[in-house]
Amino acid sequence: MPLGAVKCMGCGSFQNYRRFFDFGNNAIALLVALISVSTLAVETGVRAFRGLYEDPLAPQLSARILHADVEGLRIL
């Protein structure tokens, strides 16, 4: 094997830092998906938790866009 080679051509094993990680592309994809779903779950949980402690008598502001085009914007 040539000095400084990154991957062995015979067995396909990496010779750099990647040799310490024993997982492939599927595991990385699953990890990214898990992080994405966890982020959404935490955000939803925080929103639900805040809803428990909101004052129902406190004034709330809401708006709805009725129509939007080049000439103007109608908001309710």
Score class of each variant (00 low, 15 high):
Y17K: 05
I65W: 08
L52E: 00
D55H: 04
D22K: 14
D55R: 05
G12H: 02
L31A: 13
G10K: 12
E54F: 03
L73W: 02
G51Y: 00
R19H: 08
L66K: 05
S62R: 15
V46D: 06
G10S: 11
V37W: 06
V32S: 04
A48V: 03
G72V: 02
L66N: 06
D55G: 03
A41M: 10
A41G: 11
S38C: 12
V32T: 03
V42E: 10
E43P: 00
R18V: 05
V6P: 05
E54M: 07
A68K: 15
N26H: 07
L30R: 14
D22M: 07
G45I: 00
G45Q: 08
R74Q: 12
L52T: 00
S62L: 09
S62N: 14
G45M: 09
R64Y: 15
S62T: 13
H67V: 06
R19Q: 13
I65A: 08
D69Y: 09
F14T: 00
F23V: 03
L52C: 00
L57C: 06
V42G: 06
Q60V: 12
R19F: 08
Q60H: 11
S62H: 15
V46G: 00
L76V: 09
L61R: 13
A29W: 05
P56S: 03
I65S: 06
G24I: 02
Y17V: 04
F21R: 13
L76Q: 15
L76C: 13
L31C: 08
A41L: 13
S62D: 15
T44A: 12
A63H: 11
P2T: 09
V6N: 11
M1T: 09
L76A: 15
N16T: 09
G4T: 05
G51F: 00
V42H: 07
S38N: 13
F23E: 07
T39N: 14
G51K: 07
R47F: 04
A27S: 09
F21P: 01
I28C: 05
F49I: 00
F49A: 14
L40H: 10
V32I: 09
L52V: 00
D69R: 09
V37A: 12
S38H: 10
L40C: 11
L61A: 13
S13P: 00
T44S: 06
P2D: 13
C8L: 04
A63N: 05
R47Y: 04
P56A: 01
N26W: 03
D22I: 03
S62Y: 15
R74D: 14
L73A: 01
A58T: 02
P56C: 01
V42S: 10
V32K: 08
D22W: 06
C8A: 06
G72W: 01
L40R: 05
P56Y: 03
L34F: 04
E54R: 13
Q15L: 15
A58Y: 02
Q15P: 02
A58R: 06
R64A: 14
M9A: 15
N26R: 08
Y53E: 00
I28G: 03
